[in-house]
Amino acid sequence: MRNFDFNLLTVFAVLLEEKSVTSTAARLHLSQSAVSKQLAKLRDTFDDKLFERTSYGLRPTPKALYLAPELRQILNQMSQLTRASEFEPKLSQRQFRIHMVETAYSLTYPYFMPELLQKAPNIRLNSQTWHLGTMDMLQRCELDLGIACREWDNRSLQHIHNLPDELECVELLRDHPVCLVSNRHPLLKEPWNLASFLKYRHLQVTFGGIDHWLLDDVLNLEHLHRDIAVNMTDFHSAMHLCEHSELLLCCPAKYAAKMSQHFALTTLPVPTHLIPGAYVLLWHKHFNFDPSHTWLRELISSRTLAHYQANSQT
Rank of each mutant, 00 (worst) to 15 (best):
Y111N: 00
K189S: 13
T294H: 11
L241V: 08
L265M: 03
P110I: 01
V218P: 05
P114N: 02
V205H: 05
S245A: 00
E86Y: 12
K63P: 05
F4R: 06
F197S: 08
L16C: 10
P114H: 03
S36N: 10
S312R: 12
S85K: 15
L163G: 09
F96P: 06
Q204A: 14
W192A: 04
V280W: 00
F289Y: 14
I74D: 11
L180T: 01
L249D: 01
E168D: 13
H307F: 10
F46G: 09
L172D: 03
L247Q: 01
H159I: 00
D211S: 14
R97M: 08
T266Y: 09
A148V: 15
L282T: 02
F207Y: 15
C141K: 15
E115S: 11
S31H: 01
D227V: 08
Q118N: 13
H223N: 14
R97N: 04
R97G: 04
P62E: 00
V270G: 00
I210Q: 15
C242W: 01
L71A: 05
H236G: 10
L265I: 00
S92P: 07
L268R: 06
V230A: 11
Y308V: 01
L71C: 07
P186M: 07
A238S: 15
F12I: 00
N7G: 12
I98F: 06
R226F: 02
R124G: 14
L163P: 10
N183Q: 13
L214Y: 05
G208E: 01
K90D: 06
H284Q: 07
V205R: 04
N288G: 04
N231K: 15
T304I: 05
T134K: 06
A40C: 09
Q80C: 11
F289R: 10
V270C: 00
C251G: 06
S20A: 10
H244L: 07
L125P: 05
L145G: 09
E190M: 05
V21H: 09
D136K: 15
V205P: 08
I123Q: 06
M239V: 01
C169Q: 13
Q309Y: 08
L15A: 05
N122G: 07
P60L: 12
M239H: 04
F197P: 04
E190R: 02
A120N: 11
L180W: 00
Y200E: 08
H176A: 14
P271H: 02
A104S: 05
M137K: 12
L188K: 02
Q309W: 03
L30M: 13
M78C: 15
S92G: 05
I228Q: 09
L274T: 02
S127L: 13
K63T: 07
S301F: 02
A238K: 04
E18C: 10
L214K: 10
E18D: 09
R226E: 08
F112Q: 03
L42E: 07
T61Y: 10
G57T: 11
W192D: 00
Q313H: 12
R53V: 14
L16P: 02
Y109K: 11
E102K: 11
V21S: 06
K37T: 13
L221M: 13
L8A: 04
Q32W: 03
Q73T: 12
R140S: 11
A306Y: 06
S33I: 02
P186V: 06
Q80R: 15
T82D: 13
I228V: 14
N3Y: 11
L198D: 03
V230W: 08
L138F: 11
P114C: 06
E151K: 13
